[in-house]
Design a binder for these strands. Structure first.
Length: 481
RNA sequence: GCCCCCAUCGUCCAGCGGCCUAGGACUCCGCCCUUUCAAGGCGGCAACGGGGAUUCGAAUUCCCCUGGGGGCGCCA
């Protein structure tokens, strides 16, 4: 039987990094096995679900490059991949379970349930509700007929246990004393997550359920439901959760958790994917930079780590730099052009774009985030302001004024305008004035870029152009006096 | 309170009874390269949570403890 997996987020928030990793592992497993990757929406919580979140999730999964074979926007054998559009089916299943005696109408009030749980905890028992406050079947039927509001609960067989083999955790056992008679249909007739998700998994022929560990203890419910429907249980794989740097559950206070935020911060999707993949899995040898195709080839669900991983952006930052350097130059320019223009607040003319292309390789080598690029190239496209500390550090040093004026003179006389020619002229100047490269060249950097940190000097000068270079050297020199 | 899961450098991962004086990557620290900043090269610091047991032999198996995480809703 061919593998079918699904990523089934609830659109109650932006797609966060943990969700992204779950989607990725589903994707890698499906592709590795030649299976089908399905994207569905578990939007049974209509109060909290929004179309904005839904769109964010779709966009984010697509941005990561995880294309899905069936589901929202692409369709498939099911009429809908949104739970909000499949209510009738869930109600049908619930009715059948009641008819089969595997579920029952429940009239217990919230107060009664609350009381029951409190008492159980106080006495050291599991707070799992076992249906003890329900009327007998005959009376229940009468109440339903009379229109008395009721939820539908699944009748968990007790005593009993559910044992299953989790792909990442091996054998897991739950005593049914710990599993309560969970609600499958609310009193307003809508399904709960457990019902909707399980029915979908059965209906869509999901063979492997790969999801977060937070659902591990709900798994007996899903298995019980599946089998009560007369279907075969899926294979489960529960991924450990992602933690913040303090070891606590990852949340907003740890910085960005939304996938989209990483895109906005100048991260490359392949870098994010690579980093996320390594949070709980490794290709086996000592490699850390692995592209998607390679991951697909080597992915093994059995090799996924059981321990929770801390999401620490240091390594992601490094990896992003690696991926930026690996881009081909055209790609790099294309991906920073918008950022540069946005930073400038205007679009670049043709000549300016050529200048950007010229300097791009030198900033590509240095950037960890695409978002750093605008600042690094700004001096080429707009007037500069001298960075105060750079000026103090460099321009007030002995010899700085000599270097700037001598550099101006040597450049002014240049016939050809190339990196080689500029370098030769300036090195000649250093020699003539007896200045070290450090003492003689740093002032020029500040003079033309405004900062003591910039792309390589000779390349920067050439990109700036002769006229503007001379202007800036003159201006700097006049300020030095 | 009850149940479940987890436990190797600060972090991510390798290790699946002898190849381990525990390996790689990130971070950090030196040095080299160098016109700045990066990148790159070389080197360094740094871990098997504790206690039992099994075994000729344990990071690897078992038990207990401790620590961390998750769950216990008419949320998902």
């Amino acid at each position: 039987m061919s593998v079918r997996v699904r990523f089934a987020p609830s659109p109650t928030g932006f797609l966060h990094v943990g969700g992204g990793r779950t989607a990725l592992y589903n994707y890698l497993f499906a592709r590795n096995m030649g299976g089908t990757f399905i994207l569905r929406s578990d939007d049974t919580d209509r109060a909290r679900s929004t179309t904005e979140f839904q769109q964010d999730i779709l966009d984010s999964v697509a941005w990561l490059g995880l294309d899905w074979d069936e589901g929202i926007e692409v369709g498939g054998s099911s009429e809908s991949y949104r739970q909000s559009e499949r209510l009738a089916r869930y109600q049908e299943v619930a009715a059948q379970l009641v008819a089969d005696g595997k579920a029952y109408h429940s009239f217990a009030s919230p107060e009664q349930l609350d009381e029951f749980r409190k008492e159980a905890m106080k006495e050291g028992r599991s707070p799992a509700y076992d249906g003890r406050h329900e009327p007998d079947p005959g009376e229940a039927a009468a109440l339903v007929a009379a229109g008395e509001p009721a939820t539908v609960r699944f009748a968990v067989p007790r005593p009993g246990t559910t044992v299953f083999t989790d792909v990442v955790r091996d054998e897991v056992t739950f005593d049914h004393l710990q599993v309560d008679d969970f609600v499958i249909l609310r009193s307003d007739g809508t399904p709960t997550y457990h019902l909707a998700s399980t029915v979908d998994d059965v209906d869509f022929g999901i063979t492997h359920v790969i999801r977060g560990e937070d659902l591990l203890s709900s798994t007996p419910k899903h298995i019980l439901l599946t089998e009560a429907m007369g279907a075969q249980r899926a294979t489960y794989a529960h991924l450990s959760l992602l933690m913040g740097p303090d070891g606590k559950k990852l949340s907003k206070r740890h910085g960005h958790t939304a996938i989209k935020a990483y895109r906005d911060e100048g991260y490359l999707a392949p870098a994010v994917v690579n980093y996320l993949a390594l949070l709980g899995w490794s290709p086996g040898d000592d490699e850390t930079v692995v592209d998607l195709d390679e991951m697909i080839r080597r992915f093994d669900l059995n090799a996924v780590s059981k321990n929770p991983a801390i999401f620490d952006t240091d390594k992601l930052d490094w990896m992003n730099g690696v991926y930026i350097r690996e881009m081909n130059p055209d790609q790099f320019v294309a991906s920073v052009l918008d950022l540069v223009e946005a930073g400038l607040g205007r679009s670049l003319g043709e000549d300016e774009q050529a200048t950007l292309v010229e300097i791009a390789p030198h900033v590509q080598e240095r950037a960890k985030h695409l978002t750093e690029v605008p600042d690094q190239v700004r001096f080429l496209f707009s007037e500069i302001e001298y960075d105060e500390s750079s000026w103090q550090k460099v321009m007030t040093k002995e010899g700085a004024d000599v270097a700037v004026s001598a550099a101006r003179d040597s450049i002014a006389g240049l016939e050809s305008w190339s990196v080689e020619a500029v370098e030769a002229a300036l090195r000649g100047m250093l020699e003539a004035k007896g200045l070290s490269a450090r003492k003689g060249l740093q002032p020029l950097r500040v003079a033309i870029s405004g900062s003591s940190v910039s792309p390589p000097l000779f390349e920067s000068i050439v990109a700036l152009g002769k006229e503007r270079t001379l202007e800036r050297l003159s201006r700097a020199h006049s300020l030095q006096a």
